[in-house]
């Protein structure tokens, strides 16, 4: 077995400030080269924070990161200065939910893509622009020569997201981090962007981590899915296993509320109750206050993450393998 592309080992992220937020509490997973992992979870469950940690984009002075983060063999938490900048956009890059906010309003799309290529590959600005044009063509933007000279505000939402994808892929990263890239778009545009991303991911052979709170989207693009709740991964498994046989009560609730009702594209808020405030590290099961099947120990001990076969884990006391298995 070769080294995995991404290895998160018991990642914890804490924000200090007026109040402390325990945003990520012991997240572990691995991602193989070329594989797509979907991270599913409701708002505030720590999805974006987990992704940003992989690029070290969180505010340095207020953030306390623990555990291990390795991407392509490098210890991300130890990267500094130029090595860190080489990692960002070179080895791994990110697509944001709202490209209008992620692109600089006063530079053209072409300039912004070329800038990244010049920075990472040391090419001339003419070569940078040529690459930008090539990338805009690959993300199937109509009349790419013209879009090269367009400012972000002169494009439609879908077009901007294509430009953002072109920017992210310009330096051929091995890992693509997509943070709800379609949430801000109309339904029809959403599907186009999803298909585009899936095609490009295959074409470039990248590993991808795709964050969403839409089960339908997660199923569409992922090989494996990790379900996050209150800064923890409560369940991981292949898309098939997870849908056919969810083991964690939270996953079951999500599926019951979203799949069987056949509401495609529905958001995940059909389970009664609200997630915890994250003011302190979890000592018991974070889902206990909302869990319909909780047992006596759930409020006292934090359930361990139980492995149920290869690449399948559940953090729930009821998920222990059947006796004799």
């Amino acid at each position: 077995m070769s080294v995995p592309l991404v290895e998160l080992d018991n990642l914890t992220v804490r924000f200090h400030g007026e109040r402390t937020v325990h945003a990520v509490n012991g997240v572990s997973f691995t991602l193989k080269a070329g594989e797509t992992l979907g991270i599913l979870g409701e708002s505030g469950s720590g999805k974006s924070v987990t992704l940003k940690t992989l690029l070290r984009l969180l505010p340095e002075n207020r953030t306390e990161i623990g555990g291990g983060v390795r991407v392509d063999g490098a210890d991300i938490l130890k990267l500094e200065g130029r090595a860190l900048a080489d990692h960002r956009g070179g080895t791994a890059s990110m697509i944001f939910q709202d490209p209008m906010l992620a692109l600089d309003p006063v530079y053209t799309i072409g300039e912004q893509i070329a800038e990244a290529v010049i920075r990472h590959e040391g090419v001339s600005s003419a070569e940078g622009m040529a690459r930008a044009l090539d990338m805009l063509t690959r993300v199937r933007i109509p009349s790419p020569e013209r879009r090269l000279k367009a400012y972000p505000h002169e494009m439609s939402g879908g077009m901007r997201q294509r430009a953002m994808i072109a920017l992210a892929l310009a330096c051929r990263p091995k890992l693509l981090l997509a943070d709800e890239p379609t949430t801000a778009l109309d339904a029809t545009v959403q599907i186009q962007i999803l298909l585009l991303l899936r095609d490009l991911q295959r074409e470039f052979g990248m590993g991808m981590i795709f964050v969403t709170h839409d089960i339908g989207v997660a199923v569409e693009v992922s090989d494996r899915v990790a379900v996050m709740y209150a800064g923890e991964i409560v369940e991981t498994g292949s898309v098939r296993d997870l849908i056919r046989d969810p083991r964690h009560p939270y996953t079951k609730g999500l599926l019951a509320a979203n799949l069987h009702g056949a509401v495609k594209g529905a958001r995940l808020h059909a389970i009664p109750g609200a997630p915890p405030a994250l003011a302190e590290a979890p000592k018991a099961c974070s889902f206990a206050p909302r869990c319909p099947v909780k047992v006596s120990g759930c409020d006292i001990n934090r359930p361990p993450s139980v492995a149920l076969g290869e690449a399948r884990q559940v953090r729930c006391v009821l998920a222990a393998p059947a006796p004799g298995a």
Partner: peptide
């Protein structure tokens, strides 16, 4: 946020 975007591209 676009400043984070600039850092994210290296």
């Amino acid at each position: 946020e676009f400043i984070v975007g600039q850092r994210a591209k290296g």
